Amino acid sequence: MPTPPETPPTADQISESVRTLLAEVLQRPPTEVDMTQRLTALPGMDSLHLVQTVVTCEKQWNIQLDEEELFDVRTGEDLCTLIRRTASAQEGTV
């Protein structure tokens, strides 16, 4: 299991980073990534891009996202919430 980060990332840090990452993966400007839209409905998104996004997020924040909880992630906002909750839990500050 990865070593937890020193301090959990803030909601704003996570949101900005996930939006930027999705934009890079989809080769679009971050302003075109609607975090409330279903990830699978984002232009150019496929299962490989989703896996790439999750793996990059886990590495960036040194966390391990629960696979079962990932099945409930529908939007960018959902992914941000899961990252924040996981980082906080691994820090012990749920």
Rank of each mutant, 00 (worst) to 15 (best):
C57M: 13
C57L: 13
E58L: 00
E58N: 00
Q60W: 13
Q60P: 09
Q60S: 11
W61R: 09
W61A: 04
W61P: 10
W61Y: 10
N62R: 15
N62M: 09
N62A: 15
I63R: 00
I63C: 12
I63Y: 06
Q64R: 14
Q64H: 10
L65Y: 03
L65Q: 04
L65S: 15
L65D: 08
L65G: 07
L65I: 04
L65F: 07
L65N: 11
D66Y: 02
D66S: 10
D66M: 02
E67M: 00
E68H: 09
E68T: 05
E68M: 04
E68W: 00
E68C: 00
E69L: 08
E69I: 00
E69C: 10
E69D: 11
E69S: 05
E69T: 04
E69K: 12
D72M: 07
D72T: 06
D72R: 14
V73A: 08
V73N: 07
R74D: 04
R74Q: 08
T75S: 03
T75C: 04
G76R: 01
G76Q: 04
G76S: 06
G76N: 01
E77T: 03
E77N: 10
E77I: 11
E77S: 09
E77C: 06
D78K: 04
D78M: 05
L79E: 06
L79K: 09
L79S: 10
C80G: 15
C80V: 06
C80E: 14
T81I: 14
T81D: 10
T81P: 01
T81W: 10
L82M: 02
I83Y: 06
I83C: 04
I83P: 08
I83S: 01
R84W: 13
R84G: 14
R85K: 15
R85L: 15
R85H: 06
R85F: 14
T86I: 09
T86F: 03
